[in-house]
Amino acid sequence: MAAPAGLSRKLFKMAAPRNCFRSASPLLSEACPRWRRPAEECFPSVTSAEEPAPPLPHVVAPGSHFRSGLTRAPPARGRDHWRQRPAQTSDPGPPMSGPPVCTAPLGAPLIPGTPYSVLVLQEGYSRALPDGRTEADGSVTLVRGPQLTLVDTGGPWGREQLLAQLAAQGVAPGAVTHVVCTHGHSDHAGNLNLFPQATLLVGFDLSRGRGLYLPHGLGAGAPYPIDPGRVEVVPTPGHTAAHTSVLVQGTALGSVLVAGDLFEREADEDVWRGLSEDPARQERSRRWALSVADVVIPGHGPPFRVLRGEPQAPEPN
């Protein structure tokens, strides 16, 4: 597999695919090819010949396009397990067919690019404690370019750390033009008040200035363009009803999706449903995400690559 133009072999080969998503439920009796991941980590791929993935940009909510063949796991206890959720009555539908989609750790916090690069300032985490509590904080990501954008701000306990992380990049809070909080949980929106001059988007609430709220089409499925065709906020409902992700296109690794808690981490099949307000919608949003992203930055883990088609063995050093 050749490295894309302008991308070093070292960056391209940082990790081999390790987490594969198979095409149909009967294949759960098998392990994924070549990389020999356990079959339980496989699920149907994001595309099919009958129902291809939609191109971007588009004006239909991503969750409306894909049907899932997964059965639901029992809710996992952990962060937010106490939140009351609506009853889950919808059926995600039959499994889909198509080539496998595999993921692999990115292995670096920076995705270079022109005019936009993406830097993970803080890698999110979530750890269960022996006494039943959970220690967690969200990923914080800086999208550098003509529109300097911060995606998620971490928890309020990390205020000074966030200011130091920005200062280390030569960024003053007043220089940030847009702040996107993928949803309103405290570990993602806890430092919003550091950026009163920026355009602020928290879930589907868009504001600028002193209490001035602006119209947009996120609730109807339309992306909100920060820089049209380059940086766009897209609705990815499920974890919360108004959950969003930020899609950055044209980096050295392709399209980068800063996904909030659409993905807790790579290989998160054991936890994400138990933290979701609407697992069926989130499943569809996740499949859409895997159909368009080359790199995903999850809410509580390191970034990972998305590799479509049959995985190839890594090149020798």
Rank of each mutant, 00 (worst) to 15 (best):
A3M: 06
P4K: 02
G6Y: 06
R9V: 07
L11M: 11
R37Y: 06
R37N: 13
P44V: 04
P44S: 14
A49L: 14
A49W: 05
E51P: 00
H58S: 12
G69P: 08
T71R: 13
P75C: 05
A76M: 09
R77I: 03
G78P: 09
D80L: 15
D80P: 00
W82A: 15
D91N: 15
G93N: 06
M96A: 13
P100V: 08
C102R: 08
P105K: 03
G107R: 02
G113R: 05
T114V: 12
S117G: 14
R127Q: 12
D131S: 06
T134L: 07
P146L: 03
Q147Y: 02
L148P: 03
L150G: 03
V151Y: 03
A167R: 13
T177D: 13
V180K: 06
H183N: 14
D187N: 13
G190Y: 04
L192E: 10
F195Y: 12
T199A: 12
G203R: 03
G203I: 00
L206S: 11
S207F: 09
L212E: 15
L214W: 12
G219Q: 12
P225G: 07
P228Y: 07
V231S: 04
V234P: 01
G238M: 10
H239K: 13
A241W: 02
A241C: 00
Q249C: 06
L253A: 01
L253P: 01
A259W: 07
A259P: 07
D270E: 13
D278V: 00
E283A: 15
R284W: 08
R286S: 03
A293T: 10
V296A: 07
I297V: 15
H300W: 01
H300G: 01
V306N: 04
L307C: 04
A313G: 04
N317C: 06
N317H: 10
N317Q: 13
